[in-house]
Design a protein around this nucleic acid. Structure first.
Lengths: 198, 198
DNA sequence: GGATGTGAAGTCGTTCACAGCT
DNA sequence: AGCTGTGAACGACTTCACATCC
């Protein structure tokens, strides 16, 4: 909307777009502050900024990929689709030489992949906020421990393994198999519902 | 538990394992039928079968990967971690020759990747139930249309694009960026909460 | 007039607590 | 005695509806 030059937006319009109730939109926004103007709506620009502040996407988040196999490579090349404020600033693997060769072929330039043992040092240097675990499941907890030691507070875990971290750290799992199970449930109940529920 | 030879399990134990309330477990199970025995608990074997039936994981689900780039390759090699009842039975791309070379190197055997134009024909032959879209976002809707035409009712969409399908078809998105946004929100609220909420 | 912010009402899901079966 | 299945109590979230302000 901002790009389209829209100046204001109403809760009713936002609700329509998101497929929710307008009161829901207002309640949720009002929870974080008074962003709107009665009789007018919300300033698109201000609302955007406020939401960014709320979600933490006003600051740059620096990420490292750990495990440069198929999935890790996909993440590295996926970076074009990441929002501006996410940056992949390092890649680690247990066998960088092997991986670098494969990656360089693909990317057409020598890729930098560091040995996992350097996480601690590099985390400080490059101010890494978040680690993306893309290792085999057997290594996931070990890698998580290294990340915790390195003071990296956020972990996005792609390995199909349960990971635990001390309080103060946050892990979020990306288990596509769970979503697949969900899809299959919907398919087998045969309701013919095409919506995308949680 | 079944593998460990456990014969029965109580809602209290299941609740502990899942970190939920025991009544919740009972209510949820009771919704689908009367699986338990008063004074005893649930038969592990029976419960397992019943849950499989409910979730639709008692039947084999045949899947195709569409788009064999980094992500698609990752999916193809991920198959070891898939449950027994999920099978990847085909891979499609717009440029199979190129992809096959790259894949074969990796897998050490000539990989079979078909041209996307053959989806319709192959979907019937191989009884494909589910399509995994791993193309660039710009191609996602087009591929979805092909899958729909081919009568593939389930789509797991990895491309960062919104896809719509006719009623009777089901799309589930795997947007790891959404989970990343969520992680970042938790990190920036600084609550130090390490749990893995929805 | 028109859209927000918000108490009040309503709805939905969770937990309690116990009757009933093994 | 033990544990399920479930009505009733409870709590949380959603929607309504309107006073309030631009």
């Amino acid at each position: 909307m901002d790009e389209k030059g829209e100046k204001t937006v109403s809760s009713a319009l936002l609700a329509k777009i998101c497929g929710r109730n307008a009161a829901q939109i207002r309640k949720d926004l009002a929870y974080f502050g008074e962003f709107g103007f009665r009789g007018v709506g919300y300033s698109v620009k201000d609302l955007l900024n406020n939401i960014k502040k709320i979600l933490g996407s006003n600051k740059e988040w620096r990420m490292a990929v750990i495990g440069v196999g198929n999935l890790g490579s996909a993440l590295l090349s996926y970076k074009d689709f990441l929002k501006q404020n996410y940056k992949i600033v390092a890649a680690f693997d247990i066998d960088p030489p092997k991986v670098i060769g494969r990656l360089s072929e693909k990317l057409g330039k020598p890729a930098e992949v560091l040995h996992i043992s350097r996480v601690n040092e590099v985390a400080k240097e490059r101010k890494i906020d978040i680690g993306l675990i893309a290792t085999p499941p057997s290594e996931a907890q070990g890698v998580a421990n290294l990340l915790v030691e390195a003071g990296i507070r956020g972990i996005l875990n792609f390995a199909p393994a349960q990971i635990t971290v001390p309080i103060g750290f946050v892990v979020k799992d990306v288990f596509f198999t769970t979503i697949l199970d969900n899809l299959v449930y919907l398919l087998s109940t045969e309701t013919g519902d095409s919506s995308d529920r949680k």
